[in-house]
């Protein structure tokens, strides 16, 4: 069953978002954060306590972050909805670069282009094209960008440049 995060764990998650993307922790006051099956979920705050029914419960809220071996991994679906609250570590790619990233799973943009966009490496990034937030990526070795989009989305965006 899902468990409401302890206040110190909640603060830890929100501090990560502030540190990495500049998102203000106060933006999430209207949400509970639950942990369930090694994932954190953002669930709209409810006026009273909710007793989820054991026999039928499947999930609550939006997958927010994965909690894996001490690492926090923001999900694409969270960033698509709340990424507008971020002001740093946002990487802009054109459609041809998105297509390549989705096809190959990673691309190397070269140091210059990463520096020009003021991306801090290594760590998670928000990938945008034009004005649209696509989702999560990971930057490693200073300039390697790894795709962290859901599989179906990644497959669909391979041909984005031809559309």
């Amino acid at each position: 069953m899902p468990e409401l995060l302890r206040p110190e764990d909640r603060l830890g998650l929100l501090a990560f978002l502030k540190d990495r993307f500049g998102m203000a922790p106060s933006s999430f006051e209207a949400y509970h954060i639950y942990a369930f099956k090694r994932q954190a979920f953002l669930f709209r705050r409810q006026p009273g306590k909710i007793d989820f029914p054991k026999s039928s419960f499947v999930r609550c809220g939006l997958p927010f972050m994965r909690l894996v071996a001490g690492y926090l991994k923001p999900t694409t679906v969270f960033l698509q909805r709340f990424g507008h609250l971020a002001w740093k570590n946002i990487l802009h790619l054109d459609k041809a670069q998105i297509g390549r990233l989705c096809l190959e799973g990673e691309i190397d943009l070269g140091l210059e282009s990463i520096d020009a966009q003021e991306i801090e490496t290594p760590g998670y990034i928000i990938i945008k094209t034009g004005e649209y937030i696509l989702g999560a990526g990971l930057i490693l070795d200073n300039s390697r960008i790894l795709c962290r989009f859901p599989k179906a989305m990644r497959q669909a965006l391979v041909h984005i440049n031809d559309l």
Binding site: Y31, L42, F43, R44, I50, F52, P53, S55, S56, F57, V58, R59, C60, G61, L62, V77, F78, Q80, R81
Partner: peptide, 10 residues
């Protein structure tokens, strides 16, 4: 991108 929903199976 919805946060206010609980999914149940019954």
């Amino acid at each position: 991108g919805i946060t206010n929903t609980v999914v149940t199976q019954a």
